[in-house]
Simulated scan of single mutants.
Amino acid sequence: MSWLTDPFSLEFVQRALLGGALVAVLCAVAGTWVIIRGMAFLGEALAHGMLPGVALATVLGLPVLLGAAVSAMAMSLGIGVLQRRARLSYDTSIGLLFVGMLALGVIVISHAGSFATDATAILFGDILAVGVGDLVVLAVAVVVGVAAAVAANRSLVALAVDERVARVLDLRPRLGRAVLVGLVTLAVVASYQAVGSLLVVGLLVAPAVAARQWTERIPTTMALAAVIGAVAVAVGLLVSWHAATAAGATIAATAIAAAGASWALRAARDAAVRRRPVLVPVPS
């Protein structure tokens, strides 16, 4: 069993495992609502929307987490402005800012003259470099995310069911929408250090998709998604250690594979149930 325990005997791998587990919990809370609302594109867009801020922070020597947060919040506000002022649809607003922010980030990185190295770190992260400070940030983000989701639960549920009905019943769907965007922004920014801006969407969406195959209740989906995400982190780290692959990308690929396996198992179970013969009682 040394092949299983040896990697996790090292402190930096233990920190990576703990950090990844915290990311899995945070992404499970936000990702469940993302799946219910069909807003996976928002997570992808915000992940790219961080790029200019992270690039500028890297070039200027500022904390990259600060740059990521400012850039992601600017994109979130920009989406709302385009919807209200330019009267563009939600998807159109996200699409425009998605491309614009990504292009701006690449321009900043390329102008700095270290495109290859910086872009790799920004896009794919380095979970094996997670430190104690990063763990504290992630733990605080988990507490804030869970507290926000609990406090705005009624508005989030109403928004998920029917926004127009929620508005009529004064269930504050706007608050639900704002909290949802805030949760996704928090998850993407806090998870940036662990898996990078491109791969964070894997942990945001895939575990929730896998969990949704087995339960319809929102709290249960969140809990199961957190477990699936944490297992994906552990398996991804183990595979990465023995196969000498990028840890962040391997974790994201493992999470996506878990979603695919969950779907296949659910389909196989449903097919077996349909084929099961129905016993008709014979009248005596």
Rank of each mutant, 00 (worst) to 15 (best):
residue 108 V to W: 03
residue 29 V to F: 14
residue 259 A to T: 07
residue 63 P to T: 13
residue 194 A to Q: 11
residue 94 I to L: 03
residue 281 P to D: 08
residue 156 L to C: 09
residue 183 L to K: 00
residue 68 A to L: 08
residue 252 A to T: 10
residue 246 A to T: 14
residue 192 Y to Q: 15
residue 18 L to I: 12
residue 62 L to D: 00
residue 284 S to D: 15
residue 32 T to W: 03
residue 79 I to Q: 03
residue 272 A to R: 14
residue 102 L to N: 06
residue 182 G to I: 03
residue 208 A to G: 10
residue 1 M to T: 02
residue 31 G to W: 03
residue 7 P to L: 08
residue 144 V to L: 01
residue 159 L to S: 04
residue 8 F to P: 11
residue 165 V to H: 04
residue 54 V to K: 10
residue 148 A to P: 06
residue 213 Q to A: 01
residue 107 I to M: 06
residue 41 F to N: 01
residue 205 V to S: 09
residue 110 S to Y: 04
residue 163 E to K: 13
residue 189 V to R: 01
residue 41 F to V: 12
residue 199 L to M: 15
residue 234 A to H: 01
residue 60 L to V: 12
residue 222 M to H: 01
residue 179 V to H: 08
residue 176 G to N: 02
residue 61 G to P: 05
residue 48 H to I: 02
residue 235 V to M: 07
residue 38 G to H: 13
residue 120 T to H: 14
residue 249 A to P: 09
residue 26 L to P: 07
residue 108 V to E: 02
residue 80 G to H: 07
residue 128 L to F: 02
residue 240 S to A: 13
residue 233 V to C: 00
residue 205 V to L: 13
residue 154 R to S: 06
residue 104 L to G: 04
residue 95 G to H: 00
residue 134 D to M: 07
residue 283 P to K: 15
residue 17 L to A: 10
residue 265 L to D: 00
residue 147 A to K: 01
residue 181 V to F: 09
residue 208 A to H: 00
residue 73 M to E: 12
residue 186 L to H: 04
residue 172 R to M: 13
residue 245 T to H: 02
residue 59 V to Q: 01
residue 195 V to K: 03
residue 212 R to F: 09
residue 132 V to I: 08
residue 136 V to S: 14
residue 227 V to M: 00
residue 18 L to P: 07
residue 201 V to F: 13
residue 150 V to P: 04
residue 266 R to L: 11
residue 268 A to V: 07
residue 169 L to F: 07
residue 17 L to K: 06
residue 200 V to L: 05
residue 110 S to F: 12
residue 3 W to R: 11
residue 206 A to G: 04
residue 168 V to W: 12
residue 196 G to S: 02
residue 67 G to Y: 06
residue 153 N to Y: 14
residue 140 V to A: 08
residue 153 N to V: 15
residue 193 Q to L: 12
residue 283 P to V: 15
residue 80 G to K: 14
residue 10 L to K: 10
residue 62 L to G: 00
residue 197 S to H: 05
residue 16 A to D: 12
residue 147 A to N: 03
residue 164 R to N: 11
residue 91 D to H: 07
residue 24 A to C: 12
residue 19 G to C: 04
residue 13 V to Q: 05
residue 232 A to L: 06
residue 119 A to R: 15
residue 103 A to Y: 12
residue 6 D to M: 06
residue 48 H to A: 03
residue 104 L to W: 04
residue 255 A to E: 13
residue 176 G to A: 00
residue 97 L to R: 09
residue 11 E to Y: 13
residue 11 E to N: 15
residue 116 A to D: 15
residue 28 A to T: 02
residue 172 R to F: 10
residue 194 A to S: 13
residue 89 S to Y: 04
residue 3 W to C: 06
residue 130 V to T: 14
residue 191 S to W: 03
residue 108 V to C: 04
residue 107 I to C: 02
residue 16 A to F: 08
residue 267 A to E: 11
residue 124 F to T: 00
residue 120 T to C: 09
residue 162 D to W: 13
residue 238 L to P: 09
residue 104 L to H: 01
residue 174 R to Y: 04
residue 255 A to K: 11
residue 225 A to Y: 11
residue 99 V to T: 03
residue 108 V to H: 03
residue 76 S to E: 01
residue 232 A to R: 02
residue 53 G to I: 12
residue 2 S to P: 07
residue 242 H to E: 07
